[in-house]
């Protein structure tokens, strides 16, 4: 069971709610993914509009935890205010903290991220920081009060999959007891299985499911891959070897001469 900030979650997949072909497909994908946590955002409402109400009642009907994000924020001030507004409206102290540093790579500004994480943690937030795979940044985020880390494995929406296995292994090895969710960059279920086999606790997906040809089927595929990778990690996998080793017993083999 995945435990984050004192909450036990039966699924190791967190799912974003953006870019689906329709609200109905989003709902089916959430069900197929078996996720217990979905991410949402806050955006400007139009005068006279009630689009937020419709979306929010749809999300509430799913019966899952909501993890609001600070997507699109580029400064500490923006991110902190967005988090405060999210807490006000969603009535949760969970926040997926994003402070973007570069438009092209959507790479987090890790310096601003650590500062915002400290401010929000001191204000009672339970921060889920979207970070890189940098070990020292991870250490600073933990010092700032984060109890969960969400390193990327590749840029958001890139579908490149894990680019730096060495860095991911180092993160897992250095912080064996910190819940870590691979957030961003996963494109295929095999990517999900790979990072889960490394011992990561969960994955967070959006584009890879929402933009798939069949988002509902892909949600199910990712759920299975995440589960398989997690079970395999705990089952103890065979280390690769350079030479072949026969699996069938050699002893007792007939000798035909």
């Amino acid at each position: 069971m995945l435990s984050v900030y004192g909450k036990e979650l039966s699924s190791r997949l967190l799912l974003g709610t953006a870019q689906y072909p329709s609200p109905a497909i989003l709902m089916e994908a959430v069900t197929a993914s078996e996720t217990k946590v979905v991410t949402v955002s806050l955006r400007r409402e139009m005068a006279g509009g009630k689009s937020g109400d419709k979306f929010w009642s749809l999300i509430q009907s799913l019966g899952v935890h909501v993890l609001p994000n600070t997507a699109g924020c580029h400064t500490v001030k923006e991110a902190v205010l967005t988090a405060q507004m999210a807490r006000d409206i969603f009535k949760t102290d969970w926040i997926k903290l994003e402070v973007i540093g570069n438009h092209d790579t959507l790479q987090p500004d890790v310096f601003a991220l650590v500062e915002a994480a400290r401010i929000l943690s001191e204000d009672g937030f339970k921060v889920f920081p979207y970070t890189t795979d940098d070990l020292i940044v991870a250490e600073r985020l933990l010092e700032a009060g984060c109890e969960v880390l969400m390193p990327w494995c590749a840029p958001i929406g890139s579908a490149l999959g894990p680019l730096n296995l060495h860095a991911l292994r180092a993160l897992r090895g250095h912080f064996p007891d910190v819940p870590m969710v691979i957030d961003a960059g996963l494109g295929r279920p095999s990517h999900a299985a790979t990072v889960m086999e490394l011992g990561f606790d969960a994955i967070l997906l959006n584009t890879a499911v929402a933009k798939a040809g069949d988002p509902v089927a892909m949600a199910a595929a990712f759920a299975m891959a995440a589960k398989a990778g997690n079970i395999a990690y705990h089952a103890g996998m065979l280390e690769p070897r350079d030479v072949a080793v026969p699996s069938t017993p050699v002893i007792g083999k007939a000798v035909f001469t």
Partner: peptide, 25 residues
């Protein structure tokens, strides 16, 4: 917060943001 909006006085030049739940990743 919603509860303090009735007592929140406005003045010329103020900047107001009104946000609502949306899809997010």
């Amino acid at each position: 917060s919603a509860s303090v909006r009735p007592a929140c006085n406005l003045k010329d030049g103020d900047r107001v943001e009104i946000l609502t739940p949306r899809q997010g990743g």
